[in-house]
Simulated scan of single mutants.
Amino acid sequence: MRARYRIPLTAALTVAGLGAAAVGYAAGFEVRSFRLRRVTVPVLPPGAGPLRVLQVSDIHMVSGQRKKQRWLQSLAGLRPDLVINTGDNLSDPDAVPETIDALGPLLEFPGAYVFGSNDYYAPVLRNPARYLAERASGRHGNSPAHNVPRNPWWELRDAFDAAGWLNLTNTRGRLAVNGLDLAFTGLDDPHIRRDRLQDVSGGPERDADLSLAVVHAPYLRVLDAFTADGYPLILAGHTHGGQLCIPFYGALVTNCDLDPERVKGLSTHETPGHRSYLHVSAGCGTNRYTPVRFACPPEATLLTLTPRET
């Protein structure tokens, strides 16, 4: 009788061991294995020189994350022409000083930012399975939070504003960078329904060399509106690249209604008669209650903008 159960028991122990090893890898190594993604996007006017744009997103800083802080500081060595921060900087209300310190070297460069829900509200413990349930049901996003502790987002705002970064919260702005007149249109986080498309309607600034659209969460209603208006490039974050991915398959969820095939990196978005480039950053952090990443290392992206094809 004992011999009959020996093989299944061995198999179960093997599977359990592999599972424990995978969890250890995801929580102990990959979540701290920071990478730089590089992409080229042809959106500048003919004859313009290249523009190097560093996108950082979904930092989700928790107090004491020294390696992440040092890595963020090191990105200043890239000497970007422009920095775009697409939100969710915080995952700990006590981590604002460390977040500002980590981003301090990057604040020396021209920049612009939007916030995400985790900048406004402290994280709460939730069942991770709800993300799969949302995908199955087709329901995504949340109403503005009630009775949830708030993060001191205004301290981040004040530091970014003092450095001269553009606050793109449901508004527009312009910067002169490397001889180019850049126009920006930004939205507050659609994931908690703070976006106000009516406040930024009208499409790109026609007299600018380039108009960029910036938002935290890449919901289809926002991507459709920006693309239909004619923005050549949309920058977003929020998805964490799926966070827990299947090797050689990809992401299972995006935490919004964007399809998993475009969960991270450069792709395109189309509406009738219009096409925009879309770059979704996989971000460099996680919610403090799910501090794991698998087959989806944390990242920032250096986008090199080049002249568009004539």
Results as ranks from 00 to 15, higher is better:
228 A>F: 08
230 G>Q: 06
153 W>K: 15
305 L>V: 05
293 R>K: 04
281 S>Q: 03
247 P>V: 01
16 A>W: 07
83 V>I: 08
141 G>N: 08
277 Y>G: 00
134 E>R: 14
68 K>G: 05
129 A>P: 01
263 V>L: 00
244 L>R: 01
204 P>S: 08
28 G>D: 06
262 R>W: 03
213 A>M: 13
183 A>Q: 09
108 E>Q: 07
240 H>N: 06
308 R>H: 15
36 L>W: 03
32 R>E: 02
211 S>Q: 05
130 R>L: 11
80 P>R: 03
94 D>Y: 12
268 T>C: 10
244 L>P: 03
156 L>W: 13
106 L>P: 01
131 Y>H: 15
188 D>Y: 01
191 H>A: 02
295 A>R: 03
194 R>Y: 15
276 S>I: 05
34 F>M: 09
88 D>G: 11
1 M>F: 09
137 S>M: 07
191 H>R: 12
9 L>T: 12
180 L>N: 10
52 R>H: 13
305 L>S: 13
245 C>D: 15
12 A>N: 02
264 K>C: 10
167 N>A: 14
24 G>L: 13
20 A>L: 15
187 L>V: 09
131 Y>F: 15
109 F>Q: 00
239 T>I: 13
45 P>L: 09
275 R>E: 05
238 H>K: 01
308 R>M: 06
262 R>L: 12
44 L>E: 07
98 E>H: 11
